[in-house]
């Protein structure tokens, strides 16, 4: 049986470390990471919309 090299210790399966306050976004109105990701996607949609409007205004 092959042994893993010293720096390649396989990490064991198991539950993730208990979430602590440090793992939360800690932003006003954005209390979960899902909300942060939705906010980012919303910003992306807003940028695209603004770019379309900007091009259309001066076409």
């Amino acid at each position: 049986m092959k042994h893993p090299p010293p720096h390649d210790k396989p990490a064991t399966r198991g539950p993730d470390p208990t979430p602590v306050a440090d793992d939360l976004p800690g932003l006003p109105w954005l209390h979960r990471w899902r909300a942060v990701y939705l906010f980012v996607l919303g910003c992306f949609a807003l940028w695209v919309a603004l770019l379309v409007v900007f091009g259309w205004l001066f076409a």
Binding site: V48, L51, V52, F54, G55, L57, F58, A59
Partner: peptide, 14 residues
């Protein structure tokens, strides 16, 4: 300036 840029199709971003 934006009118001139837009007129030459420099502001079509999407």
């Amino acid at each position: 300036a934006f009118t001139v840029a837009g007129g030459f199709r420099k502001l079509e971003a999407v």
